[in-house]
Design a protein around this nucleic acid. Structure first.
Length: 491
RNA sequence: GGGCUGUUAGCUCAAUGGUAGAGCAGCGGACUUUUAAUCCGUUGGUUCUGGGUUCGAGUCCCAGACGGCCCA
């Protein structure tokens, strides 16, 4: 059946060719957008418009056709919105009128004419010319139920974007978020940089990488899991404020919160601490929320979330006591933590090192409570191989993660810049790796060498852009904010 | 990895184990102010795939594919 529709539409394209017209012409000049016309003539009366207006030439997709015999109403969609075009048999050249036999919903057309208002009050173009600029061969989804099959929506995002206004709006917001972030950091004298995606040694996060191969050098390469180490090399080099809006790749599962490739913002600021970044983050998120929503709060999944700073803070150990019921004096006690892990149904807890156990218990017990923006602080050193030790408590680090709506949105710390300590931390990671931890950090000798030249005191942060956009667009799945999420191959 | 659940016309969905249907889209026709236009007529099916039970399977059973939700 689909084939016959395509055949029918190909025949219409051929009919256009037989008239000497190219069904894929590219010589129509647009003068106005639909939104321009609504802005200019939205308040004009039918009489005022009838007195005559400037001609408008609009190009767009035909979203609906309502035919009355000698008058036909088209709904056109362009990048700005929609406008109706009215085709009256006695107003159109005969060629243009007969061409309508070849027109279908879904075609791209160019319409030119003055403005009018219908009896029902609809601002419209009174067409004096109509051309078919692109003949669509496939039909659009059903007109009011639209396209709902999520597999088709993700695989054929182009159809999703045509059919679903809110999808276009979500991605428009995504673009606004990225441009706001860029402006925010440029205004603060950060330099936008680009560092390699293909890396001989990966690092900067605890994650499994994608592997690839360079033929000429016959060399194994990894797709980056984070740009962190390269960005800090740049700080060593004297670029004391840098940021990168970067695509990262992690060879892990797919869920409503995870796509194997995702977008992160990382930035580094010399002569700053993680406390400075807490303030910067509050400023960034409150400003961003106001920019997108016009107010410092938003609704996500039915919860109102306020980005009015300062945000709440919760040290990891306090969370263990408050939400996991681990006594205050037992937060470093393996038995007490294992008991809590058991209550929280954490699998294989006995295999975990102390720091990992603390974090697993913390996350399982606390995440559901961290709905309002909350800085979780003071992480165990063991799970933070690149973070600076706390001066007062050397088994903790100067680090925070920002949680919103029960999810990690950002991760930041004062950077470890002692090359001797860093080498030891890498070696500890290498031992973890040998013991079977596939996500442990590999040794990076060149990074240690860079630190030996001197990384100024620095703080750095990563923010998950996809998850941030999910919050700002009230999207339940990361797939709703990524144009082409990874899917199994189509069968 | 486990549990639950879904897959029927191009799209959105129906169909006690008993002749596979509707709306929209398409096609033909009427109609000069519609807004999901309306009215008349009409085409269109490997019911995800492969087995099985049954006189008879879209429906029940088994296996698989592809999705969704929850848990790990």
């Amino acid at each position: 059946m689909e084939e016959t529709i395509i055949e029918q539409r190909k025949a219409k394209a051929d009919a256009l060719r037989a008239r000497g017209e190219n069904p894929y012409a590219n010589d129509f000049r647009v003068t106005h957008l639909a939104a321009d016309l609504h802005a200019t003539y939205g308040d004009a009366t039918a009489e005022a418009l009838e007195a005559g207006t400037e001609d408008a030439a609009v190009g767009g997709r035909v979203m609906a056709v309502r035919s009355f015999g000698k008058v036909i109403f088209l709904v056109l969609a362009d990048r700005s919105g929609r406008i109706q075009a009215n085709l009256f048999k006695n107003e159109l050249p005969e060629d243009d009128w007969t061409r309508l036999e070849q027109l279908d919903v879904g075609d791209i057309v160019g319409v030119r004419g003055g403005m009018m208002r219908t009896r029902a009050g609809e601002l419209s173009i009174k067409a004096r010319a109509l051309r078919i600029l692109t003949k669509a061969l496939r039909p659009l989804p059903e007109k009011w139920a639209g396209l709902t099959d999520v597999a088709v929506r993700y695989r054929q995002r182009y159809v999703d974007l045509i059919a679903n206004d809110e999808v276009r709006e979500t991605f428009r917001t995504r673009s606004k978020v990225v441009s706001y972030v860029r402006r925010f950091f440029e205004e603060r004298d950060f330099l936008e940089v680009e560092t390699p995606i293909l890396q001989p040694i990966y690092g900067g996060a605890a994650a499994k990488p994608f592997r690839t191969h360079h033929n000429t050098l016959d060399m194994q390469l990894f797709l980056r899991i984070a740009p962190e180490l390269n960005l800090k090399r740049l700080v060593v080099g004297g670029l004391h404020r840098v940021f990168e809006l970067n695509r990262c790749f992690r060879n892990e599962g797919i869920s409503t919160q995870h796509n194997p490739e995702f977008t992160m913002l990382e930035f580094y600021q010399a002569f700053a601490t993680y406390e400075d970044l807490i303030q910067l983050t509050e400023e960034l998120l409150e400003g961003l929320c106001r920019h997108i929503h016009g107010a410092p709060d938003l609704v996500y999944g039915g919860e109102t979330i306020s980005f009015r700073g300062p945000f709440a803070r919760l040290p990891v150990f306090e969370g263990l006591t408050k939400y996991a019921g681990v006594p205050e004096d037992k937060v470093r006690d393996r038995e007490a933590l294992l008991e809590a892990a058991h209550r929280l149904h954490i699998a294989d807890a006995a295999k975990l090192s102390l720091g990992k156990l603390q974090m697993e218990v913390f996350e399982a017990a606390s995440e559901p409570h961290l709905v309002q923006p909350t800085f979780v602080t003071d992480f165990p050193l063991e799970v933070s191989p690149l973070s600076r030790r706390k001066d007062a408590e050397p088994d903790l680090v100067d680090r925070f993660e920002l949680y919103v709506a029960g999810r990690e949105i950002a991760n930041a710390f004062s950077e470890l810049n002692d090359p001797v300590d860093q080498r030891e931390r890498f070696l500890a990671q290498v031992r973890e790796r040998a013991a079977g931890d596939e996500e442990a950090h590999p040794m990076d000798e060149d990074y240690v060498r860079a630190l030996e030249y001197g990384l100024p005191p620095t703080a750095g942060q990563g923010i998950g852009i996809d998850r941030l956009v999910m919050l700002l667009t009230n999207s339940p799945s990361i797939r709703d904010v990524i144009f082409f999420p990874l899917l199994r191959p189509e069968v």
